[in-house]
């Protein structure tokens, strides 16, 4: 782990009309760690992620990537930096096969916009192999024939294929059974092992305690604690989610009510 965080957000605020969705939120993610982002419904997790992904530009606040101040105003900007988001409702096309989904929107092509299938197929196979996604029988089968876990694996692998540096997973296990959840969590750990920064949004504390390095809690659009997984209990996290006090007040340097990091 380096000293400079891969991603650093400072004092991010965002409102939708009169609704203040985020107030002065900080977040940092280091390369090689899984940062869990937790909070109740409406705590602002998804909004924060959408700010990072360029879907909603933030109203206020700063974002640093690799120590450099960056502005992200569209999903393309985020992709250029190497930020990939795996959405909750899997952005896959059921009618396309695994290779086609992995390269969707970024197909290998020649100057005449003609697809170059063989390199795409070879690279897909290689990527799935490095991530040890081994249960997919054929990468030329339509995604509709895959199980939920396999589909999620494809969505994650797609994020990795593009040499991304930060992968954001929004509730990746929400719709999965036990075995498939394990499969996806193992994959999340492998991403971090390969040196990527990972942000994991989840409601499931079991998942979080199995994978996260650190845990950031949001409550009512504000930071409500930052914990190291190894030094915290589930009860403490639950308390922070449901009754945590804001850890800082309008821009004044943060104090922590949990274990300081």
């Amino acid at each position: 782990m380096t000293d400079t965080p891969l991603l650093e957000l400072r004092n991010v605020s965002k409102s939708f009309g009169s609704v203040q969705a985020l107030t002065d939120v900080d977040l940092e993610v280091r390369a090689g760690e899984v940062m869990a982002l937790v909070g109740d419904n409406g705590a602002g997790k998804s909004t924060l992620i959408k700010c990072v992904a360029g879907i909603h530009p933030m109203d206020d606040g700063e974002m640093f990537f690799d120590g450099q101040r960056v502005h992200i105003s569209s999903p393309k900007d985020a992709a250029k930096l190497g930020i990939e988001v795996v959405y909750q409702d899997l952005a896959l096309c059921d009618n396309l096969d695994v290779v086609q989904n992995m390269y969707l929107g970024r197909e290998a092509r020649n100057g005449f916009q003609i697809l170059r299938e063989p390199p795409m197929e070879a690279k897909t196979r290689e990527t799935l192999k490095t991530l040890r996604v081994t249960t997919i029988r054929s990468i030329r089968q339509p995604v509709a024939t895959l199980s939920g876990g396999q589909r999620q694996s494809v969505a994650v692998a797609r994020a990795v294929l593009w040499n991304s540096r930060l992968v954001i997973l929004d509730e990746p296990t929400a719709a999965l059974g036990v075995a498939q959840t394990e499969q996806v969590l193992a994959l999340v750990n492998r991403l971090a092992e390969q040196g990527l920064g990972v942000v994991l949004i989840s409601h499931n504390l079991h998942d979080i305690f199995e994978t996260a390095t650190r845990i950031a809690v949001l409550r009512l659009g504000r930071n409500a604690g930052l914990f190291e997984r190894a030094k915290v209990t589930q009860e403490k996290i639950v308390h922070a989610i449901t009754a945590g006090q804001p850890t800082k007040v309008s821009g004044i340097a943060a104090t922590t009510d949990g274990a300081p990091v």
Partner: peptide, 14 residues
């Protein structure tokens, strides 16, 4: 084919 399969996924894929 992508737009027909899942227009939202196609949009998110750029």
């Amino acid at each position: 084919y992508a737009v027909g399969g899942n227009a939202e996924a196609a949009r998110r894929a750029g």
